[in-house]
Simulated scan of single mutants.
Amino acid sequence: MCENIESVPDWLNEHFLEKNLRNHFKNDEINVINFNVNVATAKEGRSVYRVTVSFGVSLVGEENCHLIVKEASSIADYLDASSKEISFYDEIVAKFNEKLDDVGEPELFPEVFGVCKEKNLITLGDLSAKGYQILPANRGFNIFEAKSILKRMAVFHAISAVLQEEDANIFANYKYGRLCRETNQIYAENLKVVTDVVSKWPNFAVYAEKLRRLYGEIIERAHQTYDVNPNHFNTLNHDSLCSEHLMVRTENSTEDSPIENTVFIGFQHSCWGSPTLDLHYFLNTSIDEAYRPQRFDELVLFYYEHLVNFLKQLKYKNRIPIWTEFQNQYHERNILGFIFSCLVEPFNDILVNNEVELKARRDFYKDETTQANLRNIILYYDQLGTFD
């Protein structure tokens, strides 16, 4: 029986938990003895339940299990967010896990206990019980941490490329990413705010003018980066790899290896396309601003070397792009780096276009450190010809 039944929905009962436990452990003799539920509300209003279950197994005795039961994402249903997330955990994770074993890499996802498509529910192992945590969103990753995560990104991309090589339709439904043609393009309004800020800086009039010229084309240019180019190397992208979707374990860390392992969660934006989508998003939103953008080239090369290594270990049969080709694919999408760093990441919690929100956006750039970072990013992307 449940120990705090008043706060628990009717469907979260012994039968539901037994079904998931039996599915995961492949044992129909499992019986739930009791369970405890803590309720939390995740981003976008989804309900998330942390469940501790005591269950009995014939000839073994009583065991405990820690679970997360969550509603699949309800955001942007026109982008198939919830169905993608459910299908990823239900159909794709097991295939990834087989390939992870082939290259000797540790777990990359939570354990999947089951999904309920009728109620849009996903039951996963509770990673916090295994020592994983989500680091604060305002804490950027240092270089050693970033490289550890980029290696995990490389194996994620490499495995997806091999899976698609084995089954051309496996990711056919993963069409819509963060800035694809079907999404809300509020970041275009943020460009006007940034341009207004930049126009007031001494000696930056030329850059403000270049940003103004982007007004009529930035949405289409962003769309083009998400359009799949069949002549490029393509993979499944997570498309939201930032601190809130990265659970890290640091128990056995060292200064040079501060993260023991990283697990990815939250696949509602996942889409097929160039892996440089994930690179631009992660580098421009999640590493410490002290390393942006001057360490980008080093980090992209680090990622590429691990990507190639994993593809070779997995016996990828298609052609692997050489470094200069991959580098060109990355730089062809530099507009994404600018959008993510200057127009999306600073305003993630400001999503409505009215005078109050516009003032909040302008106020964000009153901070001197924030302005200094914006100057560096604009100069960097201008030198690469991004605004021309």
Rank of each mutant, 00 (worst) to 15 (best):
T262C: 15
I186P: 11
P230W: 03
T195V: 08
S286G: 03
N237K: 03
G266Q: 05
N261A: 12
Y226A: 03
F267K: 06
F156E: 00
I159D: 00
Q268A: 13
T254W: 07
I287H: 02
L283F: 02
N284M: 11
A188Y: 14
N252S: 09
V206G: 04
L241G: 08
E220H: 11
N237Y: 06
S243Q: 04
T254C: 01
E251F: 09
H280Q: 01
N237C: 09
Q294M: 04
D227I: 12
W272M: 04
T183Q: 07
Q164G: 06
A168N: 03
T285Y: 04
E289P: 02
G273L: 13
E289T: 00
T225W: 09
D167C: 11
Y176H: 13
T183E: 14
L301V: 02
L299E: 02
N190D: 15
A290L: 04
L236V: 09
S270G: 09
Y187W: 09
Y215N: 12
R212N: 10
F233Y: 15
E289M: 03
N229E: 15
L191M: 14
E298D: 05
A290Y: 03
N252E: 09
C271V: 10
L279Y: 05
N234G: 11
S240K: 08
R249L: 06
P293L: 00
H232N: 14
S240P: 01
V248K: 01
G216R: 03
H223Y: 15
W272Y: 10
S253F: 02
C271G: 02
V206L: 15
D196T: 07
D256Q: 08
L236A: 05
H223V: 13
A222Y: 06
R212G: 06
H269Q: 09
I159S: 04
N173Q: 10
F282P: 00
Q185S: 08
E166K: 13
P293D: 00
N184Q: 10
Q164C: 11
Q224R: 15
L246W: 03
C180A: 12
V197S: 05
A188H: 12
F156S: 01
Q268P: 03
N234V: 06
F204S: 03
L211S: 04
V197C: 09
L211F: 07
R295D: 00
F264C: 10
S257H: 12
D196K: 14
F233C: 11
N169A: 02
E260S: 12
C242S: 14
H223I: 07
A222I: 14
N203D: 12
E166H: 13
H157C: 10
A161D: 11
I287C: 02
T225V: 13
L246R: 02
N184L: 12
I218V: 11
L241N: 05
H157Q: 08
H280S: 07
Y291I: 00
T195Q: 06
L299C: 05
V206I: 11
L277G: 02
R178G: 07
Q185G: 03
Y215C: 10
